[in-house]
Design a protein around this nucleic acid. Sequence first.
DNA 1: TGCGGGTGTTACCGGTCAGTAACGCTGACA
DNA 2: TGTCAGCGTTACTGACCGGTAACACCCGCA
Lengths: 211, 211
Amino acid sequence: MAAKSSAAAPSAGPDKPRVRDRILDTACELFYRHGIRAVGVDAIANEAGTNKMSFYRSFPSKDDLVAEYLRDQEREYWRWWDEVTAPHADDPRRQVEALIDSVIDLARHKSKAFEGCKTSRGCALGNASVEIPEDNERLSGIVHAYKAEIRRRLRRLAREMGAREPDVLGDALMLLMEGSYYTRLTFPDNTGPVAAIAKAARALIDAHLAG
Amino acid sequence: MAAKSSAAAPSAGPDKPRVRDRILDTACELFYRHGIRAVGVDAIANEAGTNKMSFYRSFPSKDDLVAEYLRDQEREYWRWWDEVTAPHADDPRRQVEALIDSVIDLARHKSKAFEGCKTSRGCALGNASVEIPEDNERLSGIVHAYKAEIRRRLRRLAREMGAREPDVLGDALMLLMEGSYYTRLTFPDNTGPVAAIAKAARALIDAHLAG
DNA sequence: TGCGGGTGTTACCGGTCAGTAACGCTGACA
DNA sequence: TGTCAGCGTTACTGACCGGTAACACCCGCA
């Protein structure tokens, strides 16, 4: 949604965004909820209030749409990350704790950042990597770079908070977060083990900062 | 199913198992490596050295094969679990540590239990839940029961080792394990954060046993 | 007034999907 | 000798997939 009324649309319909944007928004929702392979371009186009022909005027192929979907979800993720960490700009530990706490909120879709956006099915990029064929280096490259950046950021935060083994702590925090996303696929709402991440992360941080 | 040369096959071909078994074996490999939706019954039948018609003589539908695949992978998992924990029958902490250490070995496919079985793509059941449509209660039920059992076992081990908050510790350990499986999809071999699980799990256990 | 970009519509292509019908062969067993 | 289960083979259905061709329309802009 949001989507701003694109840069160059002086008059334009007030609540009818460009076709390309409608398609991408719809694709994001359907891909996330049902998986990439389960959703055809025909279904996306129809759901977006247009048709397949108009779809192919905006995207060269379904693969291009998928790539756009992945980049879009990645952008949303970093937006969430930055919003959550911003209030604790020079306290790396509280940044991590804020992220962890927000993961829990996200799991029960109560986050302010993702206001009623969609019921949580965990990590869009991670789930996509189940469906991406191994020889598709373009798509799997996007996912890999994304996960590598998460890892880099968490390791950096661990280093900044003075952890004894920052890489180990960063990776451990990543495992907890990824585990939360993954189990979210199987356990509805907050019935899964996600809630344990709050205490676990704090205990790990304590252990790495102690004596 | 009984696998091996079924009860009533006195002579029988020595190295040519029944069609049904060949199909199931092939399906397990292909589903795990490429995903469920990506592999058609035709491909499975051909790879198993037979054809689609013979396939449908053994399985009423693809969904039934998928269900069998999930149950098979689950059985393999518990077999692994029991093998790894057996040597430390009355030391719950060492059981957990053995499991954790074996997860690392598994990630770099060096486990004795899964000798050269397949390059690791994490948890078969978890990955399947990405592709299972939400209204398919049969398949998603299998996955849910499986993950719930993992959770139950880890919580029980945490309780047996005298943790202060056994459910929290059990769930935290589960998050670490699931995170290991999940990230294994993105990071090849042991380049990912999986290795951190060893120290992280021990630190968490220590924290829950202290005081 | 005319032009042209963005869009909707219909029909089509070749390929693949899950699933079925019908027939023929072989080999164990009685 | 006959039977019958197990398996291979070919050909088929109807639906859907990703992707394309050709044409009509509307509307802002010059």
